[in-house]
Design a protein around this nucleic acid. Sequence first.
DNA 1: TCTGGGGTCCTAGGACCC
DNA 2: TCTGGGGTCCTAGGACCC
Length: 384
Amino acid sequence: MARSKEAKALGIKMGVPAFQIQDLIDSGKVLACSSNYALYADISARVMTTLEQLAPAVEVYSIDEAFLDLTGVSNCVDLTQFGQQVRSTIQQWIGISVCVGIAPTKTLAKLANHAAKKWTKAGGVVDLTNKERQRKLMSLLPVSEVWGIGGKLTAKLNKLGINTALDLADAEPAFMRQQFSVVVSRIVQELNGESCSELEQVAPTKKEIVSSRSFGERIICKQHMQEAISEYVSRACQKLRKEQQVAKQLSVFLRTSPFSDKERDPYYANSISTSLVTPSADTRDFISLAVKLLDKIWRDGYRYAKSGVMLSDFYDGVYQGSLFEPEPPSYQSKALMTVIDKLNGSGKGKVWFASQGIKQDWSMKRGMLSPQYTTSWVDLPEAK
DNA sequence: TCTGGGGTCCTAGGACCC
DNA sequence: TCTGGGGTCCTAGGACCC
Protein backbone atom coordinates (compact mmCIF):
# COMPACT_ATOMS: atom_id res chain seq x y z
CA MET A 1 0.00 0.00 0.00
CA ALA A 2 2.93 2.29 0.61
CA ARG A 3 6.22 1.99 -1.25
CA SER A 4 9.61 3.58 -0.86
CA LYS A 5 11.15 5.42 -3.78
CA GLU A 6 13.41 2.42 -4.39
CA ALA A 7 10.45 0.02 -4.43
CA LYS A 8 8.68 2.22 -6.99
CA ALA A 9 11.85 2.20 -9.11
CA LEU A 10 11.63 -1.60 -9.19
CA GLY A 11 8.23 -1.23 -10.84
CA ILE A 12 6.08 -2.26 -7.89
CA LYS A 13 2.67 -0.72 -8.44
CA MET A 14 0.33 0.75 -5.85
CA GLY A 15 -1.84 -1.86 -4.14
CA VAL A 16 -0.15 -4.93 -5.62
CA PRO A 17 -0.79 -8.00 -3.45
CA ALA A 18 2.43 -9.33 -1.93
CA PHE A 19 2.03 -12.79 -3.47
CA GLN A 20 2.35 -11.29 -6.96
CA ILE A 21 5.85 -10.04 -6.23
CA GLN A 22 6.91 -12.97 -4.09
CA ASP A 23 9.98 -13.54 -6.30
CA LEU A 24 11.25 -10.05 -5.56
CA ILE A 25 10.66 -10.51 -1.84
CA ASP A 26 12.41 -13.89 -1.86
CA SER A 27 15.34 -12.42 -3.76
CA GLY A 28 16.08 -10.24 -0.75
CA LYS A 29 15.82 -7.05 -2.84
CA VAL A 30 12.55 -6.04 -1.22
CA LEU A 31 11.47 -5.87 2.38
CA ALA A 32 7.70 -6.02 2.94
CA CYS A 33 6.04 -5.27 6.28
CA SER A 34 2.51 -5.78 7.52
CA SER A 35 0.72 -2.62 8.56
CA ASN A 36 1.67 -1.61 12.11
CA TYR A 37 -0.95 0.92 13.16
CA ALA A 38 0.20 1.29 16.76
CA LEU A 39 3.74 2.17 15.66
CA TYR A 40 2.59 4.70 13.05
CA ALA A 41 0.23 6.40 15.49
CA ASP A 42 2.92 6.78 18.11
CA ILE A 43 5.61 8.12 15.75
CA SER A 44 3.02 10.48 14.24
CA ALA A 45 2.13 11.84 17.69
CA ARG A 46 5.83 12.52 18.38
CA VAL A 47 6.24 14.42 15.11
CA MET A 48 3.08 16.47 15.69
CA THR A 49 4.07 17.35 19.26
CA THR A 50 7.42 18.56 17.95
CA LEU A 51 5.73 20.68 15.27
CA GLU A 52 3.57 22.30 17.91
CA GLN A 53 6.70 23.48 19.66
CA LEU A 54 8.08 24.97 16.45
CA ALA A 55 5.11 26.90 15.08
CA PRO A 56 2.47 29.16 16.63
CA ALA A 57 -0.48 27.19 15.20
CA VAL A 58 -0.69 23.65 13.80
CA GLU A 59 -3.42 21.67 12.09
CA VAL A 60 -2.83 17.92 12.22
CA TYR A 61 -4.29 17.00 8.86
CA SER A 62 -3.54 13.27 8.72
CA ILE A 63 -1.24 10.69 10.23
CA ASP A 64 1.68 12.05 8.22
CA GLU A 65 0.76 15.62 7.30
CA ALA A 66 0.28 18.90 9.12
CA PHE A 67 -0.35 22.52 8.19
CA LEU A 68 1.54 25.20 10.10
CA ASP A 69 0.45 28.82 10.32
CA LEU A 70 3.55 30.94 9.78
CA THR A 71 1.87 34.29 10.31
CA GLY A 72 4.48 36.50 11.91
CA VAL A 73 7.30 34.03 11.40
CA SER A 74 8.33 35.59 8.10
CA ASN A 75 9.00 38.89 9.90
CA CYS A 76 11.66 37.25 12.03
CA VAL A 77 13.36 34.64 9.89
CA ASP A 78 13.78 33.56 6.30
CA LEU A 79 11.00 31.07 5.54
CA THR A 80 13.24 28.55 3.77
CA GLN A 81 15.54 28.67 6.76
CA PHE A 82 12.58 28.03 9.03
CA GLY A 83 11.61 25.03 6.90
CA GLN A 84 15.14 23.65 7.20
CA GLN A 85 14.98 24.07 10.95
CA VAL A 86 11.71 22.09 11.11
CA ARG A 87 13.28 19.35 9.01
CA SER A 88 16.47 19.04 11.01
CA THR A 89 14.71 19.18 14.39
CA ILE A 90 12.38 16.32 13.48
CA GLN A 91 15.25 14.38 11.92
CA GLN A 92 17.32 14.72 15.08
CA TRP A 93 14.62 14.25 17.70
CA ILE A 94 12.60 11.46 16.08
CA GLY A 95 14.69 10.20 13.18
CA ILE A 96 11.97 10.80 10.61
CA SER A 97 12.59 12.61 7.31
CA VAL A 98 10.02 15.23 6.43
CA CYS A 99 9.56 17.66 3.55
CA VAL A 100 8.27 21.21 3.89
CA GLY A 101 6.23 23.24 1.41
CA ILE A 102 5.52 26.91 2.07
CA ALA A 103 2.81 28.99 0.34
CA PRO A 104 -0.08 31.40 0.99
CA THR A 105 -2.83 28.75 0.78
CA LYS A 106 -3.10 25.11 1.77
CA THR A 107 -3.59 23.97 -1.82
CA LEU A 108 -0.42 25.76 -2.95
CA ALA A 109 1.47 24.53 0.12
CA LYS A 110 0.58 20.97 -0.85
CA LEU A 111 2.02 21.60 -4.32
CA ALA A 112 5.15 23.10 -2.77
CA ASN A 113 5.49 20.04 -0.57
CA HIS A 114 5.10 17.80 -3.59
CA ALA A 115 7.93 19.70 -5.26
CA ALA A 116 10.10 19.41 -2.16
CA LYS A 117 9.65 15.65 -2.22
CA LYS A 118 10.15 15.26 -5.94
CA TRP A 119 13.13 17.52 -6.58
CA THR A 120 15.75 16.45 -4.08
CA LYS A 121 17.90 19.40 -5.14
CA ALA A 122 15.56 21.63 -3.15
CA GLY A 123 16.92 20.11 0.06
CA GLY A 124 13.47 19.12 1.29
CA VAL A 125 12.09 22.65 1.50
CA VAL A 126 10.27 24.63 -1.21
CA ASP A 127 9.07 28.19 -0.58
CA LEU A 128 6.32 29.20 -2.97
CA THR A 129 5.62 32.68 -1.60
CA ASN A 130 6.60 34.22 -4.89
CA LYS A 131 3.81 34.40 -7.48
CA GLU A 132 6.12 33.74 -10.42
CA ARG A 133 7.52 30.63 -8.74
CA GLN A 134 3.94 29.42 -8.11
CA ARG A 135 3.10 29.76 -11.80
CA LYS A 136 6.36 28.14 -12.89
CA LEU A 137 5.75 25.10 -10.71
CA MET A 138 2.07 24.83 -11.68
CA SER A 139 2.99 24.87 -15.36
CA LEU A 140 5.14 21.78 -14.76
CA LEU A 141 2.59 19.74 -12.82
CA PRO A 142 -0.36 17.78 -14.26
CA VAL A 143 -3.72 18.92 -12.91
CA SER A 144 -4.14 15.53 -11.21
CA GLU A 145 -1.44 16.52 -8.71
CA VAL A 146 -3.66 19.27 -7.33
CA TRP A 147 -5.20 18.52 -3.91
CA GLY A 148 -8.87 17.64 -4.43
CA ILE A 149 -8.55 16.69 -8.10
CA GLY A 150 -8.92 12.93 -8.39
CA GLY A 151 -9.30 10.58 -11.30
CA LYS A 152 -12.82 11.48 -12.39
CA LEU A 153 -12.28 15.22 -12.27
CA THR A 154 -8.96 14.89 -14.11
CA ALA A 155 -10.71 13.15 -17.00
CA LYS A 156 -13.42 15.83 -17.19
CA LEU A 157 -10.91 18.69 -16.90
CA ASN A 158 -8.69 17.21 -19.61
CA LYS A 159 -11.69 17.15 -21.96
CA LEU A 160 -12.03 20.90 -21.41
CA GLY A 161 -8.35 21.33 -22.33
CA ILE A 162 -7.24 21.80 -18.73
CA ASN A 163 -4.13 19.69 -18.40
CA THR A 164 -1.69 21.41 -16.07
CA ALA A 165 -2.23 22.87 -12.63
CA LEU A 166 -1.65 26.28 -14.20
CA ASP A 167 -4.48 25.69 -16.71
CA LEU A 168 -6.77 25.12 -13.73
CA ALA A 169 -5.48 28.18 -11.89
CA ASP A 170 -6.23 30.31 -14.95
CA ALA A 171 -9.76 28.96 -15.36
CA GLU A 172 -12.73 31.18 -14.55
CA PRO A 173 -14.05 30.31 -11.03
CA ALA A 174 -17.67 31.04 -12.00
CA PHE A 175 -17.39 28.79 -15.05
CA MET A 176 -15.88 26.02 -12.94
CA ARG A 177 -18.67 26.44 -10.40
CA GLN A 178 -21.22 25.95 -13.15
CA GLN A 179 -19.39 23.07 -14.86
CA PHE A 180 -18.39 21.25 -11.69
CA SER A 181 -19.14 22.24 -8.11
CA VAL A 182 -18.30 24.75 -5.44
CA VAL A 183 -15.41 22.44 -4.46
CA VAL A 184 -13.60 22.92 -7.77
CA SER A 185 -14.17 26.66 -7.87
CA ARG A 186 -12.61 26.93 -4.40
CA ILE A 187 -9.59 24.99 -5.63
CA VAL A 188 -9.19 27.52 -8.44
CA GLN A 189 -9.26 30.36 -5.91
CA GLU A 190 -6.75 28.61 -3.67
CA LEU A 191 -4.38 28.12 -6.60
CA ASN A 192 -4.54 31.90 -7.08
CA GLY A 193 -3.47 32.58 -3.53
CA GLU A 194 -6.94 33.24 -2.19
CA SER A 195 -7.44 31.10 0.90
CA CYS A 196 -10.73 29.19 1.12
CA SER A 197 -9.73 26.75 3.82
CA GLU A 198 -9.04 27.85 7.38
CA LEU A 199 -6.48 26.28 9.65
CA GLU A 200 -8.33 23.83 11.90
CA GLN A 201 -6.33 23.69 15.08
CA VAL A 202 -8.94 21.67 16.97
CA ALA A 203 -9.95 18.43 15.32
CA PRO A 204 -13.70 18.60 14.62
CA THR A 205 -15.73 15.93 16.39
CA LYS A 206 -16.25 12.85 14.29
CA LYS A 207 -19.52 12.25 12.45
CA GLU A 208 -19.06 8.56 11.91
CA ILE A 209 -16.81 5.80 13.18
CA VAL A 210 -16.02 2.73 11.10
CA SER A 211 -14.37 -0.45 12.23
CA SER A 212 -13.73 -3.10 9.60
CA ARG A 213 -11.13 -5.65 8.64
CA SER A 214 -10.40 -8.25 6.02
CA PHE A 215 -10.22 -11.70 7.57
CA GLY A 216 -7.02 -13.70 7.75
CA GLU A 217 -9.01 -16.67 6.50
CA ARG A 218 -12.41 -16.67 4.81
CA ILE A 219 -15.33 -16.95 7.21
CA ILE A 220 -17.91 -19.61 6.37
CA CYS A 221 -19.51 -20.11 9.75
CA LYS A 222 -21.97 -17.70 11.28
CA GLN A 223 -20.58 -17.88 14.78
CA HIS A 224 -17.20 -16.63 13.57
CA MET A 225 -18.92 -13.76 11.80
CA GLN A 226 -20.76 -12.91 15.02
CA GLU A 227 -17.44 -12.85 16.83
CA ALA A 228 -15.89 -10.58 14.22
CA ILE A 229 -18.85 -8.19 14.24
CA SER A 230 -18.80 -8.09 18.05
CA GLU A 231 -15.08 -7.34 17.97
CA TYR A 232 -15.58 -4.46 15.51
CA VAL A 233 -18.51 -3.07 17.51
CA SER A 234 -16.36 -3.16 20.60
CA ARG A 235 -13.53 -1.23 18.88
CA ALA A 236 -15.94 1.29 17.40
CA CYS A 237 -17.62 1.93 20.76
CA GLN A 238 -14.24 2.38 22.40
CA LYS A 239 -13.42 5.08 19.84
CA LEU A 240 -16.85 6.60 20.37
CA ARG A 241 -16.31 6.93 24.12
CA LYS A 242 -12.90 8.44 23.51
CA GLU A 243 -14.66 11.09 21.43
CA GLN A 244 -17.02 11.61 24.38
CA GLN A 245 -20.02 11.08 22.16
CA VAL A 246 -23.05 8.81 22.05
CA ALA A 247 -24.39 7.32 18.82
CA LYS A 248 -27.85 6.37 17.65
CA GLN A 249 -27.28 4.71 14.28
CA LEU A 250 -25.56 1.38 13.64
CA SER A 251 -24.73 -0.26 10.29
CA VAL A 252 -23.37 -3.73 9.72
CA PHE A 253 -21.89 -4.85 6.43
CA LEU A 254 -20.22 -7.94 5.03
CA ARG A 255 -18.92 -9.15 1.70
CA THR A 256 -17.13 -11.99 -0.05
CA SER A 257 -13.99 -11.29 -2.05
CA PRO A 258 -14.57 -9.16 -5.17
CA PHE A 259 -11.39 -10.62 -6.68
CA SER A 260 -12.02 -14.34 -6.71
CA ASP A 261 -13.44 -16.47 -9.49
CA LYS A 262 -17.20 -15.91 -9.44
CA GLU A 263 -17.97 -19.44 -10.65
CA ARG A 264 -16.27 -21.15 -7.76
CA ASP A 265 -16.73 -18.41 -5.22
CA PRO A 266 -19.98 -16.48 -5.85
CA TYR A 267 -20.09 -12.83 -4.84
CA TYR A 268 -22.39 -11.54 -2.14
CA ALA A 269 -22.31 -8.20 -0.33
CA ASN A 270 -24.90 -6.58 1.86
CA SER A 271 -25.37 -4.00 4.55
CA ILE A 272 -28.11 -3.02 6.94
CA SER A 273 -28.60 -0.29 9.47
CA THR A 274 -30.93 0.67 12.26
CA SER A 275 -31.37 3.16 15.08
CA LEU A 276 -31.38 2.80 18.84
CA VAL A 277 -34.33 4.44 20.59
CA THR A 278 -31.90 6.27 22.87
CA PRO A 279 -28.34 7.12 21.77
CA SER A 280 -25.67 5.16 23.65
CA ALA A 281 -21.95 4.50 23.98
CA ASP A 282 -22.43 1.18 25.72
CA THR A 283 -20.79 -1.68 23.84
CA ARG A 284 -23.50 -4.08 25.03
CA ASP A 285 -26.30 -2.09 23.43
CA PHE A 286 -24.58 -2.15 20.07
CA ILE A 287 -23.41 -5.76 20.21
CA SER A 288 -26.94 -7.06 20.79
CA LEU A 289 -28.25 -4.83 18.03
CA ALA A 290 -25.46 -5.82 15.64
CA VAL A 291 -26.06 -9.53 16.13
CA LYS A 292 -29.74 -9.02 15.26
CA LEU A 293 -28.81 -7.07 12.14
CA LEU A 294 -26.32 -9.74 11.10
CA ASP A 295 -29.12 -12.33 11.25
CA LYS A 296 -30.93 -10.44 8.51
CA ILE A 297 -28.07 -10.20 6.02
CA TRP A 298 -26.18 -13.43 6.72
CA ARG A 299 -26.49 -16.03 3.95
CA ASP A 300 -25.12 -19.53 4.37
CA GLY A 301 -22.81 -20.96 1.73
CA TYR A 302 -20.62 -17.97 0.97
CA ARG A 303 -16.95 -17.46 1.76
CA TYR A 304 -16.84 -14.07 3.45
CA ALA A 305 -13.67 -11.99 3.10
CA LYS A 306 -14.50 -8.86 5.05
CA SER A 307 -17.04 -7.30 7.35
CA GLY A 308 -17.41 -4.22 9.48
CA VAL A 309 -19.63 -1.87 11.41
CA MET A 310 -20.32 1.83 11.29
CA LEU A 311 -21.61 4.12 14.03
CA SER A 312 -23.24 7.43 13.08
CA ASP A 313 -25.80 10.02 14.16
CA PHE A 314 -23.73 11.27 17.09
CA TYR A 315 -24.76 13.40 20.07
CA ASP A 316 -22.62 14.99 22.75
CA GLY A 317 -25.09 14.02 25.50
CA VAL A 318 -27.96 16.31 24.54
CA TYR A 319 -30.60 14.55 22.45
CA GLN A 320 -34.32 14.13 21.94
CA GLY A 321 -35.55 11.37 24.22
CA SER A 322 -38.35 8.98 23.44
CA LEU A 323 -41.89 9.91 24.41
CA PHE A 324 -42.88 6.33 25.16
CA GLU A 325 -39.75 4.40 26.09
CA PRO A 326 -38.35 4.99 29.58
CA GLU A 327 -34.86 6.47 29.68
CA PRO A 328 -32.37 3.66 30.40
CA PRO A 329 -30.33 4.30 33.54
CA SER A 330 -26.96 5.54 32.32
CA TYR A 331 -24.88 5.67 35.48
CA GLN A 332 -24.00 1.98 35.74
CA SER A 333 -23.37 1.71 32.03
CA LYS A 334 -20.91 4.60 32.11
CA ALA A 335 -19.13 3.23 35.15
CA LEU A 336 -18.69 -0.20 33.56
CA MET A 337 -17.48 1.16 30.22
CA THR A 338 -15.00 3.44 31.99
CA VAL A 339 -13.56 0.50 33.91
CA ILE A 340 -13.26 -1.60 30.75
CA ASP A 341 -11.55 1.22 28.86
CA LYS A 342 -9.12 1.77 31.72
CA LEU A 343 -8.25 -1.91 31.95
CA ASN A 344 -7.68 -2.18 28.24
CA GLY A 345 -5.69 1.05 28.11
CA SER A 346 -4.13 1.72 24.74
CA GLY A 347 -3.55 -1.95 23.99
CA LYS A 348 -6.29 -4.46 23.36
CA GLY A 349 -7.61 -7.58 24.89
CA LYS A 350 -7.29 -7.57 28.66
CA VAL A 351 -11.03 -7.84 29.13
CA TRP A 352 -13.66 -8.33 26.47
CA PHE A 353 -17.20 -9.49 25.84
CA ALA A 354 -17.76 -13.23 25.39
CA SER A 355 -19.36 -12.70 22.00
CA GLN A 356 -16.03 -11.37 20.68
CA GLY A 357 -14.77 -14.96 20.92
CA ILE A 358 -11.60 -16.30 22.47
CA LYS A 359 -9.44 -17.65 19.67
CA GLN A 360 -10.49 -15.30 16.89
CA ASP A 361 -9.13 -17.63 14.21
CA TRP A 362 -10.52 -15.31 11.56
CA SER A 363 -8.50 -12.26 12.55
CA MET A 364 -6.22 -10.34 10.21
CA LYS A 365 -2.96 -11.93 9.12
CA ARG A 366 0.05 -9.84 9.92
CA GLY A 367 2.83 -12.35 9.33
CA MET A 368 5.41 -9.71 8.46
CA LEU A 369 4.71 -7.28 11.27
CA SER A 370 7.57 -4.98 12.15
CA PRO A 371 8.39 -4.61 15.86
CA GLN A 372 6.22 -2.19 17.83
CA TYR A 373 9.28 -0.39 19.07
CA THR A 374 7.51 2.27 21.07
CA THR A 375 4.24 0.67 22.14
CA SER A 376 5.13 -2.85 23.23
CA TRP A 377 7.50 -3.72 26.07
CA VAL A 378 8.77 -6.89 24.43
CA ASP A 379 9.62 -5.00 21.24
CA LEU A 380 11.74 -2.32 22.93
CA PRO A 381 14.99 -1.94 21.03
CA GLU A 382 18.12 -2.90 22.97
CA ALA A 383 21.24 -0.77 23.02
CA LYS A 384 24.43 -2.81 23.24
C1' DT B 1 -4.34 -19.40 -1.97
C1' DC B 2 -3.14 -14.68 -1.50
C1' DT B 3 -5.93 -8.08 -2.99
C1' DG B 4 -6.27 -2.01 3.31
C1' DG B 5 -8.71 0.75 6.67
C1' DG B 6 -10.20 4.62 7.67
C1' DG B 7 -12.71 9.39 6.79
C1' DT B 8 -15.24 14.09 4.67
C1' DC B 9 -17.99 17.11 1.68
C1' DC B 10 -21.39 18.22 -1.87
C1' DT B 11 -25.51 17.62 -4.72
C1' DA B 12 -29.89 16.07 -6.25
C1' DG B 13 -34.18 14.47 -5.30
C1' DG B 14 -37.97 13.09 -2.37
C1' DA B 15 -40.91 14.17 1.31
C1' DC B 16 -42.63 17.22 4.11
C1' DC B 17 -44.00 22.06 6.27
C1' DC B 18 -46.69 26.85 6.02
C1' DT C 1 -52.68 28.10 -22.18
C1' DC C 2 -51.49 29.67 -17.92
C1' DT C 3 -51.73 26.15 -11.29
C1' DG C 4 -47.23 30.19 -5.55
C1' DG C 5 -43.32 31.10 -3.04
C1' DG C 6 -40.74 30.08 0.50
C1' DG C 7 -38.50 26.72 3.44
C1' DT C 8 -36.30 22.15 6.11
C1' DC C 9 -34.75 17.47 6.69
C1' DC C 10 -33.14 13.18 5.07
C1' DT C 11 -30.86 9.91 2.03
C1' DA C 12 -28.19 7.98 -1.69
C1' DG C 13 -24.62 8.44 -4.54
C1' DG C 14 -20.51 10.46 -6.22
C1' DA C 15 -16.26 12.49 -5.57
C1' DC C 16 -12.38 13.27 -2.97
C1' DC C 17 -8.60 12.66 0.89
C1' DC C 18 -4.81 9.99 3.74
